[in-house]
Amino acid sequence: MSEEIEKIIVDLLIELNEELEGNLLENPTKKTKLYGGGGALDSLALVSVITDLEERISDEFDEDIVLADEKAMSQKTSPFRNVKSLTIYIQKLLKVQN
């Protein structure tokens, strides 16, 4: 499941990069920083990524999760800080639902 989630995130970032016509998110990997501390996304872009991810997770796994966390805007502990942490976070939410 972890690989599927990571692929969803990476595909989304590639699309976002094309949309933004930038190279901040080019060739995203597990280690790609997303938000805070050198991350490529500002808070508006993060909100957009979260919205798209929720929809894709819902389509892929048939589970409605909400990517909202009290640490969302934290520089150090946000689940949105990189692709790996976000993958783990989503996996955790899906496990709780089941």
């Binding site: 909100v47 957009s48 979260i50 919205t51 798209d52 929720e54 909202a68």
Partner: peptide, 10 residues
Amino acid sequence: SREVSKVMMK
């Protein structure tokens, strides 16, 4: 508001 705003944002 939160959930519908996500749709409206797009």
